[in-house]
Design a protein around this nucleic acid. Sequence first.
DNA 1: CGTCTGACGATGC
DNA 2: GGCATCGCCAGAC
Length: 107
Amino acid sequence: MEKDTGMFERIYRLVSKVPEGSVATYGQIALMVGHPRAARMVGFAMGRAPEGLPCHRIVNRLGAMAPGDVFGGSGFQRRLLEDEGVTFREDGRIDMERHRWDGTDGD
DNA sequence: CGTCTGACGATGC
DNA sequence: GGCATCGCCAGAC
């Protein structure tokens, strides 16, 4: 495997292995890369994430995301997730307990 | 090397 | 249960 050019590389790789119909939280990703308190870095990395990265599957612990125009708008992200089979609650948040990524990429 | 910051998280009120 | 503050870590200046 290529060496980690920084945590970003790990984050991107980890996020890219999140299966469809599942979502992961920033904190969860941070924990997986070995930095349980670096949730901010994950979000920061997402903002600089390259195209092709399913960053729409990465949400905060509330199952929501930035209220602003990040990632083309939260509504855009929601539509993508719904298209993958992700369901939302009446709150407008993702049903985390149901779609939270287990960390297992199918192996 | 000091300071700021950023798609967060937990805690306090 | 929503808003404010502190804490975290690593990159940019």
